[in-house]
Amino acid sequence: MPLTFILDPPVDRALRDGLVTLWTEVSDAGGAVGFVPPANPDDVRAELVKHLVSMAEGRTRLLVGVDEEGAVAAAVFLTLNTHRLMRHWLWLYTVMVHPLHQGKGYGRDLMDAAAGAARGIEGIEAIRLTCRGGTGVDRFYESCGYKEVGRVPDAIRVAPGDDRDDITMLLPLH
């Protein structure tokens, strides 16, 4: 059964807890979403608060995918640029699909829904995102139409002796 995607859902305790659980479990499954396993839910919650503040200030939008039971199964943050010369594109941050739902096409559905949401924002012409090298996720984003436009070697230190490239990707929306 497909996920139902909601842009700018009402933020309540259930959503916050669902996002922390999703983020923690994606991290613990090896997802490159800002933490390494084992992710501490308190650290995840603190990072989520930063996104929630940005949402309250109108700088970030949240797209959530819920399963048939209403549980948070996927999410991505769309962050607008505030710089006057870069307001024509936005960033995607923290692209996540719950490990139980991976392999069902929900990642592609999430990316399609994010592109649709971005197209609905006046003046947005492209989406940028970054991803961690060595995970293969850049190939997934390429299959969704993104092109690699930059790479910083060894910019992400996952652990001592384990440095990964920071890859920037772009999806033009026109």
Results as ranks from 00 to 15, higher is better:
Ser27His: 04
Met86Trp: 08
Pro99Ile: 10
Lys104Arg: 14
Gly120Tyr: 05
Gly31Cys: 04
Asp166Thr: 01
Met96Gly: 01
Leu170Ser: 02
Asp8Arg: 15
Ile6Arg: 13
Arg151Gly: 03
Pro10Lys: 13
Ala155Gly: 12
Pro172Val: 09
Asp112Glu: 12
Gly150Met: 04
Pro153Ala: 15
Ala39Ile: 02
Leu85Trp: 13
Val152Thr: 11
Arg128Thr: 08
Ala159Ile: 11
Tyr106Ala: 12
Leu85Gln: 15
Pro160Glu: 15
Arg139Ile: 03
Tyr146Asp: 06
Thr24Arg: 04
Val72His: 00
Val64Gly: 06
Gly34Lys: 02
Thr21Asp: 15
Pro38Tyr: 12
Met55Tyr: 10
Gly18Leu: 01
Glu25His: 14
Ala126Pro: 07
Thr94Val: 12
Arg157Phe: 01
Met169Ser: 03
Val26Met: 02
Phe5Ala: 05
Asp67Gly: 09
Asp165His: 10
Thr130Lys: 07
Lys147Gly: 14
Lys147Tyr: 11
Arg108Glu: 03
Lys104Val: 04
Phe140Glu: 06
Ser54Thr: 12
Arg151Asp: 09
Gly31Ala: 03
Leu170Gln: 14
Val97Gly: 01
Asp42Thr: 14
Leu78Val: 03
Glu57Phe: 08
His98Arg: 02
Cys131Thr: 15
Gly30Gln: 12
Gly65Ser: 09
Gly105Lys: 02
Ala71Leu: 10
Thr60Tyr: 08
Ala159His: 10
Pro153Phe: 10
Phe5Arg: 00
Ala39Lys: 04
Pro37Ser: 14
Gly133Phe: 08
Gly70Lys: 04
Met111Val: 15
Arg108Leu: 04
Thr60Ser: 11
Gly136His: 05
Phe5His: 00
Leu170Asn: 07
Leu3Arg: 03
Phe77Arg: 04
Ile167His: 00
Asp8His: 13
Lys104Ala: 13
Gly133Ser: 10
Arg16Pro: 12
Tyr93Cys: 03
Arg13Asp: 15
Thr24Met: 03
Arg61Pro: 05
Val97Lys: 02
Met111Ser: 04
Gly105Tyr: 09
Val95Arg: 05
His83Asp: 15
Val97Thr: 11
Leu78Trp: 01
Arg157Pro: 06
Gly123Val: 08
Thr4Met: 13
Leu22Ser: 00
Leu19Arg: 00
Ile6Asp: 01
Gly103Glu: 13
Tyr141Val: 08
Ile124Arg: 00
Tyr146Arg: 08
Gly65His: 05
Val26Ala: 12
Asp67Tyr: 01
Phe5Val: 08
Ala115Met: 01
